[in-house]
Amino acid sequence: MKAFQYVRSTTAKSAIEALAKDPSAMFLAGGTNLVDLMKRGVTEPDKLIDISRLPYTKIEKESSGVRIGAMALNSQVADDKLIQEKWPLLSLALNAGASAQLRNKATVGGNMLQRTRCGYFYDTEMDCNKRQPGSGCGAKEGYNRMHAIFGTSEHCIAVHPSDMCIALAALDATVIVQGPKGERKIPFADFHRLPGDHPEKDNTLEKGELITAVTLPDSPYAKNVHYLKVRDRTSYAFALVSVAAALELDGKTIKSARLAMGGVAHKPWRLLEAEKALVGQTVSEATFQKAAEVAMTGAKGYEYNSFKLKLAPNSIVEALKIAAGLTA
């Protein structure tokens, strides 16, 4: 690991100023991903600005929704009574991620900024446009079992690894950021980006910006929700495919629906068309099959991940069935 400076900020203002002064400085929150990246030489900041003591740890009810501080721990949010009662999908997704130890350390803001777990990104001897723009993509012709089937570009087929973000995407979250130019709000759908020509950019944060909170609007999805994560082992494994499903039901009729997938794209993959296909329909496996079919439009497999073309729709149906209470 390259030697680095460590400074601690206790206000957003001083943290943002410190970052602005130093082009290679980075914020350090829980450190559960950044420290690994530094150990592997993937990320080599000269300075770490520790923001873990910033006062953004609260989960507060707002007039219409909830505000979750960016420094709230993953386990804290997952266990929060209000979240469990009104936004249970978020709690389910959080608990499907990482391990208990990591969830006790990782923050909400940090979780959103996780880098991909693509093996070619992590190995500094391999080509990776995300790590080293212009070097090529090792995964495209390589071992791409974990990789994307939606929204890829010729430069990158990596996937976004977070579970929490899949639920946030489904629940129409908004990201609150502070920057040198003040505060701005980013709709969750616009926060992460597709690789395109710039796979080195995971998100739309600008230099010097700091996530201070995530807000969720009031939600009718307190009951019929499920987060299904299909993975190679039962815990502490990234998703092959994950599905966040939420249904607003009126008897057997679907009033509204929210669907997002993980493990399939460079960003949380919201399934707007599939949601539309569900609205007004009667709850049934056939309805869910149809939505899953719509959801798969434009999917494309690679040598080792073509199974996702089948696993993804199967998982959508299964998640919806569980959300709707159709399974045993």
Partner: peptide, 29 residues
């Protein structure tokens, strides 16, 4: 069910030589 060390034969290098990607069973398994 879970264990497999994978080599990218183009380079002769392992692509999952760490505990996140090489899956030994956990308690839940």
């Amino acid at each position: 069910l879970t264990e497999e060390a994978v080599i990218d034969h183009r380079f002769g290098r392992y692509v999952n030589n760490n505990f996140a990607d090489y899956h030994v069973p956990v308690n839940a398994d």
